[in-house]
């Protein structure tokens, strides 16, 4: 009987403590797939005068969430989608990888992909885009600089004119 209760008695390691530096690469993707994913995320949210997806660690976030928080169907959607992107990129650009394209080529490629693709590829694009957006907007940079998140001190003002500040 004791064995039946053994599995959950200690906290999983992630509940103990975590820093951005301790995140290991995802066991889900190969190095090539990882770099394709990183360039996809960077194309969706590029570096401008403020940091983009890569600088903010969004590709690692996407892998982490898909691997740990989503089901096997989503994991397959991600892997298959990355394969499709590599495959179509090479076919449509005469042998270039997606990562080998310049920014405009990448944008055109993704817009075409999304417009004409099958359902699974559309699901893939939707998944990567939504997680890129979430990874960007939940990042420390976005939360502190754009959202002005403060842990303390907190306050609540119920009726503030929209015209006053952010």
């Amino acid at each position: 009987m004791a064995a039946a209760f053994g599995g959950l008695l200690s906290l999983p390691s992630w509940a103990q403590h975590w820093t951005p530096e301790t995140v290991a690469g995802s066991p889900l993707l190969s190095a090539l797939e990882e770099s394709t994913l990183a360039d996809l995320a960077e194309t969706i949210i590029p570096e401008t005068d403020i940091p983009g997806a890569k600088s903010l660690g969004v590709p690692a976030y996407i892998q982490k969430i898909v691997n740990d928080c989503m089901d096997t169907k989503a994991q397959e959607t991600l892997k298959n989608g990355l394969y499709t992107v590599s495959d179509l990129a090479q076919k449509s650009s005469g042998g270039k990888t997606f990562s080998g394209m310049d920014t405009n080529q990448r944008l055109n490629f993704l817009n075409q992909l999304n417009a004409g693709a099958d359902e699974e590829t559309k699901d893939f694009f939707k998944l990567v885009k939504s997680l890129t957006i979430r990874g960007f907007t939940t990042s420390e940079y976005f939360q502190t600089n754009i959202n002005h998140y403060q842990l303390v001190p907190g306050f609540y003002h119920g009726c503030v004119p929209v015209s006053t500040g952010k």
Binding site: P12, T138, Q143
Partner: peptide
């Protein structure tokens, strides 16, 4: 309170529960 002073981005899954849990 190990998580008492953590900001949301400091969580490995940004506060989302892993599927395993």
């Amino acid at each position: 309170y190990p998580t008492g002073m953590m900001s949301p981005w400091e969580f490995e899954h940004r506060t989302q529960l892993p599927l395993e849990i």
